[in-house]
Structures are given as C-alpha cells and as structure tokens.
C-alpha cells in the first residue's frame, strides 16, 4: 500500500499548487486562470476517485485471482496459498509448466540425436583386402530425412515455447516492479494538463501489467483446463536403451555396436513415436498453454488502451499505428 500513501502525498502537493494559482488568480482578477483552477480542482477530485476505484479494482482482482489460484493448486483452504500477489501465482504456474516441457525438449532432442546418429553410420567393407578400394555401406537409407526433420521441428517448437514462457515470466515480473514506480508517477502526471494523457497511460499500464496480465493468464489457464497438474512430460520409449548404446559405442566394440545402432535406427517405428507425440495430451495441453499468454496480453493491451482513454489519454490512432508497427 506504499504507492497509495505516496500518491496521496503527491495529490495533496498538486492541490497545494493549484490553490496558490487560484489565490493568484483571485488577487490579480484573472478570470480565465480562476476558471482553469476550478477545472483543475475537479480533476484532482476525479484523481481521488480514481485512486479509490483503483484500490477497489485491485482488491477485487486479488480476491478473484486468489480463488483461481486456489482452484489451480486444488486447495480447499481459504488461506492464501501463494500470497496475495497474482504475479507470484502466475509465475509459479509458468515454472510448474516449464518443468515437463523442458524434460520433453531434452527427451526429443536425445532421441533425435540418436536417430540422426544411427542414420549416418556407415559400415566400411573392402574388396581385395582393402588394397584396391573401399566400399561404404551407406547409413539407414530407409529412414527419410522428413522423419529427422519432424523431430527437429518439434525441438524448435518446444524451444520457441520455452522462450515465449520465459519472456512472459520476465514481462510479468517487470510489470509488477514497474507498477510500483509508474502508478504514483501516473497520478501526479495526470494532475497537469500537458501530461494528463501520459499520466493516464502510466496508471493504465501499471494496473494492466501488475493485475490484469497475471490474472487474465491464470483465468485463461483455469478456463481452458490446462493446468500444470495435467501436463506431464512426453516420454519416448527405449530412450535409456538408446543412450546406453551410444555410451557402449564409446567404450566397446565399435563395429558391432555401430551395426546394432544402425539396424535399430532403421527398424524403429517412427510413425508411432511421432503419432503418439501429436496425439498425446501433452501436445494438446501445450497448444492451449501457448495461447494463454497471447490471450492475456491481448486482454491487457485492450485494458490499457481503453482504461487510459477513459482517464483522458488520446490513444485511438496511436493504438492502431502501434499494432501496425508491431
């Protein structure tokens, strides 16, 4: 609640400044200035209402987020599980989601590494005791590049997903920290006519990033049923065996192990592995989770734009231009 005290001090400071202007206007009989001061008094009154509305809004959203957070963590207790900060709750959820995704990334990369390795193994034979020429028996010719390509694609998608979630976490943390700075600044800037729009934007951004963004994310997760509890890492069958064979190749009989790896790489049922991945609940939940931050950011952007306009910023054209720029 520090920002509220700070904001109130700044609002009183503004009130004092305008009162001085008002007294000057009365003393010098400047009707225009007197009228302006009166309108500014109204603006400060509006600012006070805004502060009250913000406090109410934050309390309401915190309560709602707490409820959703409890639901996500399956807690029946009414006591706060993750504190009252929705950002903490959202970051906690993202990290829980990231665990199985990173494990899947490692699994798929490991398996893809083995298959690509097996595909490229060549057995060297010679005729005439090696005196004339060497004959290379090529790698697993029956293993099409598209299979390896599909594994590569999955790794890329998972990597982009991990990057996206890290980015989202940092945006939420940044927004939470930013709100403490820009909310009081927004209130004070809004008190002056040339900076009214910027002040309104600061207030809207502070609330948007600290409250709306994490809350919207948690609620989207909750509504879609894509909780961290339902996400389990995708396991590839025989992965330990593949890894063991790679180790054996390093230690023991090269040719025998290499032949075995090559044969195995040729005989693996890739269609089944890939089919299992794309039909797994992991993939379905992943897609829903991927969308959640996008929806949360759209909600936040809409909130910032409309709330800032409500408070006096003129963003109609800027908003459209900015989206085009992005």
């Amino acid at each position: 609640m520090d920002w509220i005290i700070l904001t109130l001090i700044l609002a009183i400071f503004c009130l004092g400044g305008i009162t001085i202007f008002y007294m000057m206007a009365r003393a010098f009989s400047l009707k225009g200035l007197e009228k302006w001061c009166k309108s500014e008094y109204m603006e400060i009154l509006i600012t006070a209402f805004i502060i009250l509305a913000i406090i109410g809004f934050i309390q309401g959203m915190l309560y709602l987020t707490q409820e959703v957070s409890n639901e996500l963590t399956h807690t029946t207790s009414t006591a706060p599980v993750l504190g009252s900060d929705p950002v903490n709750a959202a970051v906690f959820e993202v990290y829980k989601i990231l665990g199985p995704i990173k494990k899947t990334y490692r699994n798929v990369f490991s398996a893809g590494f083995f298959f690509a390795f097996g595909k490229e193994i060549s057995i060297i034979g010679t005729d005439m005791g090696g005196l004339l020429s060497k004959t290379f028996i090529p790698g697993a010719a029956s293993l099409p590049n598209t299979i390896i390509g599909t594994f590569t694609w999955i790794i890329n998608v998972l990597g982009i997903f991990v990057m996206w979630m890290y980015f989202f976490v940092e945006v939420m943390k940044f927004g939470d920290y930013l709100a403490v700075i820009i909310l009081p600044m927004g209130i004070i800037l809004r008190a002056f006519p040339p900076t009214r729009g910027v002040g309104a934007m600061f207030i809207a951004m502070g609330l948007g990033f600290a409250i709306v963004l994490p809350s919207a994310f948690l609620m989207t997760l909750f509504v879609s049923g894509s909780t961290s509890e339902s996400l389990e890492a995708f396991e590839i069958e025989n992965l330990d065996e593949y890894n063991k064979m790679l180790e054996e190749l390093c230690i023991g009989n090269n040719i025998a192990t290499a032949s075995l790896i090559k044969n195995m790489a040729m005989s693996i049922d890739y269609q089944t592995i890939l089919g299992m991945f794309f039909e797994s609940s992991f993939f379905a939940i992943l897609l829903r989770i991927f969308i959640s931050p996008v929806i949360a950011l759209i909600i936040t952007y809409t909130f910032i734009r409309s709330f800032a306009m409500m408070l006096g910023a003129d963003l109609a054209e800027i908003g459209r231009g900015l989206i085009k720029l992005i």
Partner: peptide, 27 residues
C-alpha cells in the same frame, strides 16, 4: 570419422544430431 582395421570398419558422424539445432541458432 572413418576407422577401418584390416579392411573392415565404421564411418560415423558423431555430431549429426546437432543439426536439429540449426534452426535454433538461425532464429
């Protein structure tokens, strides 16, 4: 790497699986 002893051996490309990271570094 290709290693052959008395005319029989193997040829391997140990880091071939790393090509799956091509796109990561491109991005």
């Amino acid at each position: 790497f290709s290693v052959d002893i008395i005319g029989l051996g193997i040829g391997i490309t140990p880091g071939k699986g790393l090509n799956s990271l091509n796109r990561v570094f491109e991005i």
